[in-house]
Lab assay of single mutants.
Amino acid sequence: EPLWIRPDAPSRCTWQLGRPASESPHHHTAPAKSPKILPDILKKIGDTPMVRINKIGKKFGLKCELLAKCEFFNAGGSVKDRISLRMIEDAERDGTLKPGDTIIEPTSGNTGIGLALAAAVRGYRCIIVMPEKMSSEKVDVLRALGAEIVRTPTNARFDSPESHVGVAWRLKNEIPNSHILDQYRNASNPLAHYDTTADEILQQCDGKLDMLVASVGTGGTITGIARKLKEKCPGCRIIGVDPEGSILAEPEELNQTEQTTYEVEGIGYDFIPTVLDRTVVDKWFKSNDEEAFTFARMLIAQEGLLCGGSAGSTVAVAVKAAQELQEGQRCVVILPDSVRNYMTKFLSDRWMLQKGFLKEEDLTEKKPWWWHLRVQELGLSAPLTVLPTITCGHTIEILREKGFDQAPVVDEAGVILGMVTLGNMLSSLLAGKVQPSDQVGKVIYKQFKQIRLTDTLGRLSHILEMDHFALVVHEQIQYHSTGKSSQRQMVFGVVTAIDLLNFVAAQERDQK
């Protein structure tokens, strides 16, 4: 057995438009009618409502009807409940999964919650491996369901041993009777949507819809739904939504950006999952974080739909894509998950301010006199920076000697690579993860907040409520011999709460 199987392995699926269902090699399930009293909570997966979006479509000038398939009504709160249950049931049916076995899954959280929910009911041990950027709410729900959680670096490539995929496979090879159901490759993922989600949409719309818009992560949702719609409703256009920084969209030119990270969760990847059939997507749109969270908040405030950030991405694209539809036509959007997962993220004004998705003037509360002053007023001194090749031991000596707790790590040209902190280095040394002679590049981390000289002290204040420091950066445009230009970030300084307090105190003292 291989040590790991690539999540982007070539698909062996034989589905073709027009091929009889009787030739399918898979076990198919028909939607079942729910009894009045459910035998367990797993029976509350599927049969989610279709809700008309009344205000947002009109606000953006849509002539067509805009409908939302509300997947956050599933038992675990997301569309991923469907595939989690289906993968477990299919693994039980073919004898792969037996009582007492362990389920391991690399996930952005929602599939993990679905699997942990099913594992709690069915009696399996469950280990979820997820990147650090995923919300604390997801972690809390997983723990409450009895799952064990392993976190991995957000910026690790999918084929790196440190990625959530790599760590999951390492655990599988170490733990007896453990299984990775593997949402990236498992046919049960798109089949769950082909058999149930798509049929529900067709039934709820009486077979009449002209466009379907869905955000894409593993691709199982859009693949399964689109294949069924292509068979039953061939005139329906399928629109895929991919965040900026991901590479799922086609044509490839759409993916060209210097951005590699994004805040919206559960969609987009740096590889093409095996289950994603991009041939059934008629057109791709890219979405960005700001519009995703703005539209998610709009869905909550104006439509009462308590959905997550990827739902915002989907609707932001839908109001663009559906401009081509006329009166009497219908566009369906998939709202994948609930706001429950993001209470401390985009639902929080403070978080939105820190990330730059909300401006101070958007909030009406009274601010102190210094709130709208610029960061450049602080008069920061030149920063202490270190090269990635310097040793951890030497870096600790320098920081202690100069009285700093942290320093930016830059390359020879001064471009920011990340940050090192005294606390992080000492804990890594004590844990045996690094040696004093190791290069400081081994303990770089990139989960820090950046701020510009033109940003306000109010925004800085919000950042420092949650973080010990902020890195002050400025952009530099560099022209190359080819005539092309590129933008790079340079370090201007490091600012802490002490710097802000000293500035405010000094100004008030001078005024007296």
Rank of each mutant, 00 (worst) to 15 (best):
I451N: 13
K446C: 12
I396M: 15
F492Q: 15
M490G: 13
A497T: 14
A311C: 08
F404M: 14
V332Q: 02
F357H: 07
A296V: 05
Q487V: 11
T454L: 08
A497H: 02
T385H: 02
D349Y: 06
Q435A: 14
L335A: 06
S310A: 02
I239S: 07
S427F: 11
F346I: 09
G441R: 15
L399K: 08
E290C: 15
V472S: 10
M490S: 11
L387I: 13
L305N: 02
P388S: 14
T389A: 02
L399W: 06
E265G: 04
R452T: 04
L430G: 05
S310L: 02
L378I: 04
L471S: 11
M343N: 08
L426N: 09
I396N: 10
K345D: 02
N255L: 06
Q406S: 02
Q487G: 12
R374L: 15
T260A: 07
I498C: 06
T344S: 02
A321F: 06
K366D: 12
H372Q: 14
K286Y: 05
T454R: 06
R278C: 02
V319M: 13
F346D: 06
T344N: 02
L426H: 13
Q354W: 13
D282T: 11
D282N: 13
V332D: 02
Y445V: 11
S461C: 14
E258F: 11
T294C: 07
P408Q: 11
Q478W: 11
F285M: 04
M352S: 04
R374A: 15
L384V: 11
T260W: 12
P383F: 09
G493A: 15
D289M: 02
D405L: 04
W284E: 02
R278P: 05
L453Y: 02
G245C: 08
K367V: 13
T364Y: 13
G356Y: 05
L426P: 02
T260V: 10
Q323I: 06
T314F: 07
G441C: 08
L373T: 02
H480I: 10
G483F: 12
T391M: 12
F357K: 13
E265C: 02
E365T: 14
G379Y: 14
H372M: 07
Q329G: 11
R278S: 08
A505S: 12
K366G: 09
R350P: 04
T395S: 11
S427Q: 05
A497F: 05
G309Y: 14
M466S: 12
E252L: 11
V317S: 06
H394W: 02
R297F: 02
E252K: 11
V280H: 05
I416S: 11
T294F: 13
K442S: 08
V420A: 10
L422C: 13
A470S: 13
I416K: 02
I300A: 02
L325I: 07
L335N: 08
Q329F: 09
T261W: 11
S461M: 13
I477Q: 02
I239D: 02
E244L: 02
F271W: 06
F293V: 02
K355V: 02
I390R: 02
V415D: 13
R350L: 11
V420C: 15
R459W: 10
L363F: 10
R488M: 14
S310F: 02
L464R: 05
Q259W: 06
D270P: 02
G414V: 11
E290F: 06
E397N: 13
D242L: 04
I398R: 08
D282I: 05
G379D: 14
V494L: 13
D270H: 07
Y262K: 10
I416Y: 11
L426E: 02
G418T: 09
P408S: 06
I238E: 04
E365G: 12
G458V: 10
D337P: 12
Y269L: 02
T391Q: 02
T294V: 11
E360P: 02
Y445L: 11
V410G: 13
A382T: 15
V494S: 15
K283V: 10
F404V: 09
R509H: 14
I334S: 04
E253K: 09
G458C: 14
L276K: 10
Q256F: 10
G308H: 02
P408C: 06
E361P: 02
K286R: 02
L430Q: 02
V440L: 12
L305T: 02
S381P: 13
A407P: 08
V375M: 10
V319L: 10
V473K: 02
W370R: 14
L422M: 15
H394L: 06
F293A: 02
E291A: 14
D438I: 11
E465K: 15
K283N: 11
I498G: 12
L501T: 02
T391F: 12
K446V: 12
Y262E: 04
T314S: 14
G312F: 02
H372T: 14
E377M: 15
L464H: 04
V443L: 05
K367F: 13
A321L: 10
Q323S: 07
D270N: 04
V319F: 12
F285V: 15
Q323W: 11
F357M: 02
P336C: 08
V495T: 11
K442D: 13
V420R: 02
V491N: 15
L305Y: 12
H474R: 04
Q406D: 02
S338L: 07
K355M: 11
W284S: 02
G418P: 05
D411I: 11
C307A: 14
Q487D: 14
Q447T: 10
T279I: 10
V415E: 13
R297T: 06
G418M: 05
A382P: 11
K402S: 14
I300R: 02
D362R: 14
T496S: 12
R452F: 11
N341M: 05
V386L: 12
I444K: 06
T456A: 13
S437D: 02
P383N: 02
K366R: 06
R400F: 08
Y479P: 02
E253H: 02
D282L: 07
G493R: 08
H394P: 12
T391P: 14
T482G: 02
D405R: 09
H480R: 09
K366A: 12
L373R: 08
P408L: 02
I451V: 14
L325G: 02
D242A: 04
A316V: 07
D455N: 08
Q302E: 07
V420D: 02
V440N: 15
W284I: 02
V333P: 06
L306R: 04
T454E: 10
G483T: 12
Q256C: 13
Q439C: 11
E401F: 11
E401I: 15
F357D: 02
T456V: 12
V333A: 14
K366W: 09
L417T: 15
G312C: 15
T456N: 12
R452M: 14
N288S: 09
K402R: 13
T421W: 06
V504L: 06
M490V: 14
T260I: 13
E508S: 09
D289Q: 02
V315I: 08
L335V: 15
D467L: 08
S485F: 13
L305I: 08
R452K: 02
H480F: 11
E291L: 10
E401L: 02
I451S: 02
K433H: 13
V409Q: 09
G304N: 02
K345S: 07
Q302A: 04
R509N: 02
G309T: 09
A296K: 05
L384E: 02
N341L: 02
V280F: 06
L417N: 10
S481V: 15
A301V: 12
L254S: 05
K402A: 05
P336Q: 10
R488L: 14
E361G: 11
D282F: 13
L248D: 04
Q478D: 04
R400M: 08
T421L: 12
L453A: 08
A296W: 02
G266S: 02
L305C: 02
G432A: 14
R452W: 14
P336N: 04
G414D: 14
S486L: 14
T421A: 13
A292T: 15
A311E: 04
Q476C: 09
A321V: 12
K366Y: 15
H372P: 02
V339D: 02
P408E: 02
D289S: 02
Y445F: 10
L373S: 02
P273T: 09
I239M: 15
A318V: 04
